[in-house]
């Protein structure tokens, strides 16, 4: 039952994207609150140490965790000025190829980010101000990329004949 299976995969991709997006939203609010706390404390007492690097880490979480949702909602902008001039089967093939290559790209990005996280553990590198071992954030970013790769893979499956969602803009 390929259709049921791909429908399930599609639902799984949607759930995963949404769940990570909730985390992204939490990190957005946290970034705002942290930056504001820093401003207020700076004015009345002294600034929070490490705000700059924490804002960077939180920002990375925000982007990595929203990759899936942005892809599901087709938020990533494309140009494709000449696409409408291509014959329909070629367009469909191009879309399938595009999703597959993008999937490979984000999977590789996830693997390489994780590999770099392992290097951070090995070298013992710490963050500049708080001297945090910050590799958990790096692994989380890798997770976001892997989720994106999964979402793109489901998008690829959906371009195949007889599947749940087909792409037509």
């Amino acid at each position: 039952m390929p259709t049921t299976f791909s429908t399930r995969l599609d639902a799984l991709a949607e759930t995963l994207a949404k769940a990570l997006a909730i985390l992204a939203g939490i990190f957005l609010i946290a970034t705002m609150l942290l930056a504001c706390a820093n401003m207020i404390l700076r004015a009345v007492h002294e600034p929070l140490p490490g705000t700059v690097e924490l804002v960077g880490f939180f920002g990375a979480m925000l982007t990595a965790f929203s990759l899936g949702l942005a892809q599901r909602r087709r938020s990533h902008i494309f140009v494709g000025l000449l696409t409408p001039k291509l014959p329909r089967p070629i367009r469909r093939g191009a879309d399938a190829l595009q999703f597959l290559v993008s999937c490979a790209f984000f999977a590789l990005a996830g693997i390489e980010t994780a590999r770099w996280g392992m290097d951070l553990i090995r070298s013992g590198e710490l963050s500049s101000t708080l001297r945090l071992a910050y590799h958990p954030f790096v692994f989380a970013a890798s997770l976001g990329c892997m989720a994106m790769a999964f979402v793109l893979f489901v998008d690829f499956l959906n371009t195949l004949p007889g599947h749940a969602r087909t792409e037509e803009h």
Partner: peptide, 17 residues
């Protein structure tokens, strides 16, 4: 990026890599 509906960021990343 003119021919395909590939997001610009993806295309730059993939070709750059």
């Amino acid at each position: 990026i003119f021919l395909f509906r590939i997001p610009v960021g993806f295309a730059m990343g993939i070709l750059g890599l």
